[in-house]
Design a protein around this nucleic acid. Sequence first.
DNA 1: ATGTGACTCTTAGTCCGTG
DNA 2: CCACGGACTAAGAGTCACA
Lengths: 77, 77
Amino acid sequence: MLNYGVKNTNLSIRFGLRIKELRKSKGLSQEDFADLCELDRTYISGIERGKRNPSLNALEILAKALNISIGELFSNL
Amino acid sequence: MLNYGVKNTNLSIRFGLRIKELRKSKGLSQEDFADLCELDRTYISGIERGKRNPSLNALEILAKALNISIGELFSNL
DNA sequence: ATGTGACTCTTAGTCCGTG
DNA sequence: CCACGGACTAAGAGTCACA
């Protein structure tokens, strides 16, 4: 895999912004959203800031909490 | 995160089949495809068998090698 | 309400091989 | 050409105290 040790890749940044936008459109705080996902608040924060590289499993959890498909997580990306 | 230690989740199985289908539609062997992705042959094999839980970064690599968007990886899923 | 560094534990992903 | 395993290193999951 390329990009060893590099956080803040373009994709993770754009993905984080997308999650933030989707979360806000539901009127949820990071904490509310984290509870919905049964994930830690700081983990959500890390994703939204592009500091995390979530797994397929995590994507599924995020999508379910937002009531959209995984594919839709990547619309406008 | 729930589902510790559980491989073979429904999603990873379906996703693996989707990757396999997309790879074959390009007439590529697992090894050819792995080389294209600059990923390990056994890792691709694991993904297709639903034994792996690829990261967002890995999804991007797979999508690029297949010349489709990440969202399209999840069409018909 | 959120950002952030640092931490432990587990997994992602590699590299060697076999049938 | 592919499924599958063992052993390994780098990175992700998940959490905390503090700003």
